[in-house]
Design a protein around this nucleic acid. Structure first.
Lengths: 190, 190
DNA sequence: CCTACCGATCGGTAGG
DNA sequence: CCTACCGATCGGTAGG
């Protein structure tokens, strides 16, 4: 049986792991770093997780899960194809550049560290998110708002949005929301 | 003095390192893997490179250097803004998805493994490449071919193009060149 | 969750 | 470029 305290401790570990994996990368983060971040001994980690990789999977699943939840919640309130289009851009950049404590960045950049089995599991979660995007793009294309090659458009856009963590500075000129709107402009058919 | 044989050996090591770093990642590749790939003892690596990181820098510098050379060569033959635009897309995807033996992928995804000093050096090389892109986009915008927010457009496009290694399959429907043309279509103002 | 520890492996070096 | 090696560190475990 899993007690409430164990769940809390586990959640703390995932939060710490998100931050550390983002800052230092998964491979360069040691189990000792992780343990120290929550004030326990390194051996005690393995009471909560069987392996270090299990922590990575938990972080990545949390990242994509929260992103998908946010998107579907926001989409439920959007009416027109244009509103929905704005929503997918904004939620993505808001989450990635604004509120993300690391889980989402880790999701994007640590795929090579996963075992095949774990990868398969996470791909399913990622696909659910991309399906939501696809649907919004298809509606937008039907309304003449964007180019009709929506599958490639989705890939181009998601790549371009993912890449923002490499250059976006929070102190800069644009907020994530403004940036989202400007990026949408670039592919909108007038 | 550096003899011809030493240069050759060094080049072999860089080639092997490109492949291994791409396949396994820099952190997961050991000096023993690298030595074995060229048939030497692990200690002997350090006759050619002072540290493992120096090998990473060499790989990344080779990746961005070759890409920039190719681009400038191809641009010299392009006349119109539209031709130049096609060229930057094609050279990028051709190199990344077609001929790259790993150096370019490593360049894109191993930044976090670099020391600050090495990073600064490589950023200069990368900026030279991006300046070429910027110039082509500016000309295209002046000719009314693309959106005028060319700085953001450059970032969106380079991100989207970089990301193709995550999903492109060589056996698939489109060649790198065809893919380049289709992607360009997505941001072309009609 | 801690204590105490292990076997494996890591990047790198000295001396030839 | 090889031989022989080193100190440090790694993920993980047994027993409580």
């Amino acid at each position: 049986m899993t007690t409430q305290e164990e769940k809390t401790r586990r959640a703390e570990l995932i939060t710490a792991a998100s931050r550390l994996f983002k800052e230092q990368g998964y491979e360069r983060t040691t189990v000792r770093d992780l343990a120290q971040a929550v004030g326990m001994q390194s051996g005690s980690l393995f009471y909560h997780f069987r392996t270090k990789e299990e922590m990575l999977v938990a972080v990545m699943a949390a990242g994509i899960g929260e992103l998908t939840d946010r998107l579907e919640e926001a989409l439920a309130e959007a009416k027109t194809p244009l509103e929905k289009l704005k929503t997918v851009f904004r939620v993505h950049l808001d989450t990635l550049l604004g509120d993300d404590k690391g889980a989402l960045s880790v999701l994007l950049y640590e795929w090579p560290s996963l075992s095949d089995k774990a990868r398969t599991e996470l791909i399913k979660l990622r696909d659910a998110y991309e399906r939501d995007w696809q649907q919004v793009l298809d509606e937008a294309a039907a309304a003449g708002l964007v180019h009709s090659d929506t599958r490639l458009l989705r890939k181009l856009l998601l790549g371009g949005l993912h890449w923002t963590i490499q250059w976006y500075k929070a102190d800069g000129s644009s907020s994530p929301k403004e940036l989202a709107d400007r990026m949408l402009e670039l592919v909108l058919k007038k």
